[in-house]
């Protein structure tokens, strides 16, 4: 009997905790899981299944400092591509990445995925943020 009550209480606490997951956390979870699919379809062939890149031809996506410093430019990188020298994890890359004409929502999802995988932890990159960032593309 005692065990039953404890079980019931534990269950109730669990349900409460789950429903307590904030709207933000749920948004993050949605973005992240959808973003992993966008990644597989549009990024993985070059950047690899673990974001490892390829030698010094294709940069890895594991440089958290670079991602953080360029957070507001990431959407433009995805949409319009990137060329010129960049330093990732201390190595110089200067090949061209082609842009991919994804929707702002897809960009937000894939960036949320990348920015919170492979050792990165930048939180949700929202649709609002992507829309703002895209206005500033060079």
């Amino acid at each position: 009997m005692k065990l039953r009550i404890i079980g019931l209480i534990a269950g109730a606490v669990l349900i409460l905790a789950a429903s307590c997951q904030s709207e933000q956390e749920m948004e993050f979870a949605r973005y992240y899981s959808a973003g992993s699919l966008v990644y597989q379809q549009h990024c993985q062939n070059c950047h690899g299944d673990k974001g490892q890149g390829l030698q010094i031809l294709i940069p890895p996506l594991t440089d958290s400092v670079f991602l953080k410093n360029n957070k507001t430019k990431l959407a433009c990188f995805v949409k319009n591509g990137l060329e010129g020298k960049i330093t990732i994890n201390g190595r110089v890359f200067d090949d061209q990445m082609q842009g991919d004409d994804l929707s702002p929502l897809e960009i937000a999802k894939v960036l949320t995925y990348i920015a919170n995988s492979y050792g990165n932890k930048l939180g949700t990159i929202t649709l609002q943020q992507v829309q703002n960032d895209l206005k500033t593309c060079e």
Binding site: N45, C46, G48, Q55, L57, Q96
Partner: peptide
């Protein structure tokens, strides 16, 4: 060399 689709994966494996 500018193949955006399958080549990087191929050559990662060929390595």
């Amino acid at each position: 060399t500018t193949c955006p689709s399958i080549c990087p994966k191929m050559h990662a494996n060929m390595l």
